[in-house]
Amino acid sequence: MNKYDVVINFNGNISLPVIDDILHKLKVYLHNNINDKLIRKRVYSLAVECLDNIFKHSDLTDINNKLVNKYPPKFIVEFFHDTFLIHTGNIISNENTEKVIQKLTQLNKLADTEVNQLYKDSLSNAEISEKGGAGLGLIVMAKTTRQKIHFDFERINHNFSYFAMQLNLKIN
């Protein structure tokens, strides 16, 4: 296995067929390069949650829109040394940024056992949104990686920001 691999490097509109295509490519890579089934499933699970988040929570998706052209959704998976790095990016409305910052900041403060407890509590209380999300995606990411979630918001204009996130999953 190479010490550095770009497994997936996608910039553009994230549609359901695109998600299927990315996940298929990822599955093939994992099957050919990772022996440990648990790690294969964890990387796959993180990819599903990240792609679902971009698909369901991007606040501006029209690819013909100038802003989307300049700040397209992105989904990148790299493998470096002993870690999978998953990078995502999408446009989010400024009114939603505070909610996401609060959720991620809170998650990053929690110990592993507290993340597990939050997951159980959230399962009981979760409600499925119009878009089909249960609000559990970020918690699953923290639970799966057991590492801090890196994130950043770049303000684009009065209405929108670009939300970038990075997950690290160690294979050992």
Binding site: Y44, E49, D52, L123, S124, A134, L136, V140
Partner: peptide
């Protein structure tokens, strides 16, 4: 074999 977080809600 595998389920995503939205499915987890419905399994619960």
């Amino acid at each position: 074999d595998y389920f995503n977080s939205s499915s987890a809600k419905f399994i619960s």
